[in-house]
Simulated assay, not measured.
Amino acid sequence: MGKIDSKQLTDKIQNYRDNGKSCSQSVLTGICTTVDCKLSEEELLSLGKGFSGGIGGTFDEGTCGALTGAIIALGLIYPNDPKMNVALSKQLLKFFQDEFTTLQCGKLTHNGEDKTICDPCCAFIGEKFAQLYNEL
Rank of each mutant, 00 (worst) to 15 (best):
L74S: 09
G126V: 11
D11G: 11
S24N: 03
F124V: 01
Q91P: 03
L108P: 06
T10F: 06
I71V: 15
G112A: 08
A73P: 11
E42A: 15
T68P: 00
L136P: 01
Q14P: 02
S46D: 12
N80A: 15
K115C: 07
C64T: 04
Q131M: 10
I31W: 05
S40W: 09
L88E: 08
E113P: 07
V35D: 05
L44F: 02
C121S: 09
I55F: 14
C37R: 07
Q8T: 14
Q8I: 15
N85W: 09
Q91W: 05
D60P: 02
S22F: 12
K7C: 01
K90D: 04
L39F: 14
I72T: 10
I4K: 00
L67H: 01
L47S: 03
E99K: 13
E42W: 08
L76E: 14
C32H: 08
C121R: 07
K3R: 11
F95M: 07
T29P: 03
Y133I: 09
F129R: 11
Q14C: 13
Q104K: 15
Y78S: 09
T102G: 09
D114Q: 08
L92Q: 12
S6W: 00
Y78W: 12
A87K: 12
F96L: 03
T33H: 04
G65K: 10
C32L: 11
E43G: 01
Q91K: 14
Q8H: 09
R17A: 05
L93A: 10
D36N: 15
F95S: 12
N15H: 13
F129Y: 13
L67A: 04
K90Q: 14
H110T: 01
D114T: 00
T102E: 09
D11W: 03
L92F: 04
F95R: 06
F59S: 06
G75Y: 12
